[in-house]
Amino acid sequence: MLDVQERPAAGAVEAPAWHRKDLLDTDVLSRAEVELVMETADAMLEVRSRPVGKVATLRGATVVTLFYEQSTRTRASFEVAAKAMGADVVNLTASGSSVEKGESLIDTVRTLEAIGADLLVMRHGKSGAPYLAARHTKAGVINGGDGTHAHPTQALLDLYTMRRHLGGLEGKRVVIVGDVLHSRVARSNIWTLLTAGADVTLCGPATLLPRTLASAGGEHGRVTLTANLDEAMADADVVMALRIQKERQATGLIPSLREYINVYQVNAARAAKAKPGALIMHPGPMNEGIEIAPDIAHGVDSVIEEQVANGVAVRMAVLYLMATARTK
């Protein structure tokens, strides 16, 4: 059984109020829960800044990463995060495991539970697959990205990165540019940003905008949709470019990548329309020269590499909170 032997940065994290078995999306998270993740991530960032950068908080816990889709940074980030707290980590991919032999998702997660997995980090190509998994295992399930639905830890690390630069998000304007319709990153970001009180502008070709999300605004922030990037950039505090999949051209959703670049690439001229010093973000992996110009991706206002670094701290926070909840 999991034994939390050491609390990181004692005193920094007071009595965690995390009760969730699973983290499937950000849409269910309260402001207090998001705050708890942010505060815990602060403590984890402090751990990461030490010469050794490790604690034994999750010693005895088994974290399984179960990836049905390719990933470099998310899987590596979770693995580093879990190991930085002393957890045992098992990495499984759809190729090279019994998944290929047609073993169903439910059988797989039950098997992993039986061999002692405490937490399952799961990525899957089909929206909602982690929900199915979570309903059929006692292990905690962390959604590491499902289809075109959600990517909650990415949204939390994005929020964390924004807060470190902007302080609070209340009243701030965040522009998300690109294939919003098929973006799990955009969707999960919308919920955390609204909860934090930001206004979100979704911008992209009309074929790639989820029109009904315009009504998603809540008591704090609101969501607006526009196909006009120049308009969207005005007074933006944060500009987040999304990866554009080349298949979108083949399926006719955009006429051509050239046209997409002309109209929707985040470049210097467009960035100049945002507030001075507006943060430039990208969830990765980037197609430099397509959705984002290289000089902007690596420019002074870019926090793209910092997103990756913060990702480890935020995932440590999530793993810690979820593992702790399991011992209660």
Binding site: S127, G147, H149, L181, T212
Partner: peptide, 11 residues
């Protein structure tokens, strides 16, 4: 296709 599909990321 609509409010629920866009929310759940389903085609």
């Amino acid at each position: 296709e609509g409010r629920v599909s866009e929310r759940l990321g389903l085609p």
